[in-house]
């Protein structure tokens, strides 16, 4: 029984890992040998970083990577600022109108605006083809706001009281007491928002037609899912500096590039995100 469970769980982990290892192996194979690689190969036939050299010199892919980093960083910072400000206010019990604000937030939570009215609004605001729409979009998530509120409520009241007696106003208490004492909460929410921005593709696809502003996910979609080699690699489809390229290897490499930043953050994700998600579901 025990052995069976261990073997089964180990197979589950292989089902997750092997497809990724296969893509990594394909992307690290010399393009001249890449056609010999198939879905079962887990090791490069002839090791080479050439595929990544091509990808990172590609205007759309390197540009997309930079765009994604920028949008994720700026978006997450704005999200955190707005969310913590709102959470600071509604975490206070002495705040007049709290019930009304919470009711409003729950209405927001239940009523999702439809795609078309949002599209027309973005158009009217003149935000089409701007980074602004990608940074502003989903600026605050109501669930996350409630989670942040609980982190703030965990800060002992005596500390806030002490700060107030020392003459600190709300802005000071927020910036110099609440935020430093809620680092775990901020890390959790930062990861929630960061992963959301990094993985966002749909709004970027609709609102951004200028390819130079595409985030990586949109480039990836165009390349791997829509198989649009011409857009991604331009006129020199089969050649790079006189060497033949391999599309399977390039696609595999693009997928890997989109995953790597998440893997770098994964230890932190496991530490904070999982805990935060569990508390979000379990508390209350």
């Amino acid at each position: 029984m025990k052995v069976f469970i261990h073997v089964f769980l180990f197979l589950c982990t292989l089902a997750v890992l092997l497809p990724l290892v296969n893509l990594l192996a394909v992307s690290l194979t010399d393009p001249a040998y890449a056609h010999l690689m198939d879905g079962l190969d887990l090791w490069p036939k002839k090791f080479s970083l050439f595929t990544y050299e091509v990808l990172l010199k590609n205007r759309l892919i390197a540009g997309g990577l930079l765009n994604s980093v920028f949008i994720t960083a700026a978006g997450t910072l704005l999200n955190l600022l707005l969310t913590t400000m709102a959470a600071y206010v509604i975490a206070r019990n002495d705040f007049y109108g709290k019930g009304l604000v919470v009711f409003f937030l729950i209405v927001i939570l239940v009523f999702e605006p439809g795609l078309i009215p949002e599209y027309l609004l973005v158009k009217e605001l003149g935000l089409i083809n701007t980074y602004a729409v990608l940074i502003l979009y989903k600026g605050i998530n109501v669930y996350y706001l409630f989670i942040m509120m609980r982190y703030f409520q965990d800060v002992p009241n005596e500390l806030l009281e002490a700060a107030r007696i020392d003459g600190a106003g709300h802005l000071r208490i927020y910036a110099q007491v609440m935020l430093p004492l809620s680092k775990a909460g901020i890390a959790t929410l930062g990861l929630f928002y960061g992963v959301f921005h990094w993985n966002e593709y749909f709004r970027s696809m609709i609102y951004i037609s200028d390819q130079r502003k595409w985030p990586l996910q949109v480039v990836l979609r165009q390349f791997v899912i829509r198989q649009d080699n011409a857009t991604i690699l331009g006129g020199y489809e089969h050649l790079f500096g006189g060497t033949i390229v391999d599309f399977d290897a390039l696609q595999a490499g693009t997928i890997i590039i989109a995953i790597v930043p998440l893997l770098l953050l994964y230890p932190m994700i496991l530490k904070y995100y999982a805990k935060g998600a569990m508390e979000g579901g379990v508390k209350e």
Binding site: P19, L20, L23, V195, W198, N199, E200, Y201, Q217, L220, R221, V224, I225, Q251, I255, A258, I259, L262, Y266, I269
Partner: peptide
Amino acid sequence: FLSWVVIAGI
């Protein structure tokens, strides 16, 4: 934590 674009690709 992977986007559906990445998963669809895989």
